[in-house]
Design a binder for these strands. Structure first.
Lengths: 129, 129
DNA sequence: GTGGGACCTGAACCTGAGTTGAGGTCAAGA
DNA sequence: TCTTGACCTCAACTCAGGTTCAGGTCCCAC
């Protein structure tokens, strides 16, 4: 037994990802097509690492397409930081806009929680279309 | 000419909403079924107000179903603030969780913008699955 | 050798908030 | 009268990120 290999279910439970998501990522090109043994996918532990990268990038707000760009570039030997910096710089204003909108929602909700109106149409909270 | 009535297109442009969205809201029960003249929907200016309520509630993070609950309750004569307070209190923790996650993304992106790694699999930014 | 659990494929389905398209009708101005 | 633009309905489509299902295979333990 050369390298220990993992079934898709094992990879899934180590990475905290569903089996169907792994197959989906493979279809999307985020994971390389693995070796097979008797029809079953066999993975190396590196796949668990890669899934961690994918999950982290997703949590950072990247779409799967963007994660694909990131992974593809580094697979081609380019230093990871080039794509990462580019993507991070592009994503940052999006996230900051999201935060700003969410803060505004929060303020509105805090006021709404104290609302005493009878009718929404005349409530100052709903002014300006 | 009793009350000035508006076509769907006029309502749309006053409210800053698309015509298809108005028909969609009607199907979803967020807007009352309007009178017709020769097959065309005729609206009163109150519809523009109601669309403003809907848009504001959406911006506050409410789903259309939740907006429906809000509007339906006040249509039945209940004071608006009851439903509004309830919904706002329920929504607030969701928005606060969103803000927290977004702040974490932002911090991560700020660090990622400075990343110098060659390989993502060993980058500290991607540690812990 | 048989039961059952993990795996395989491909296609269909899900959510949310609408948009788009086809095919038809209505109103108003030249 | 004709044209044009706004309107009508209903069904199907969009996007993301998967999940679920049906029908079939594979491995392992008993």
């Amino acid at each position: 037994m050369p390298n220990a290999t993992l079934t898709i279910g094992e990879v899934a439970s180590h990475a905290g990802v569903s089996v169907s998501a792994i197959r989906f990522y493979e279809r999307r090109g985020l994971l390389p097509v693995p070796e097979r043994e008797g029809g079953w996918r066999r993975y190396t532990p590196a796949t668990v690492e890669r899934l961690a990268v994918i999950e982290t990038a997703k949590r950072a707000g990247f779409s799967l397409d963007e994660v694909g760009v990131l992974l593809a570039a580094t697979d081609e030997g380019a230093p990871a930081h080039e794509q990462l910096r580019t993507l991070a710089s592009r994503k940052l204003p999006e996230i900051e806009a999201l935060i700003e909108r969410a803060e505004a929602m929060r303020q509105w909700l805090l006021v709404a929680r104290q609302c005493d109106c009878d009718e929404l149409d005349v409530c100052a909270l709903f002014d300006r279309g």
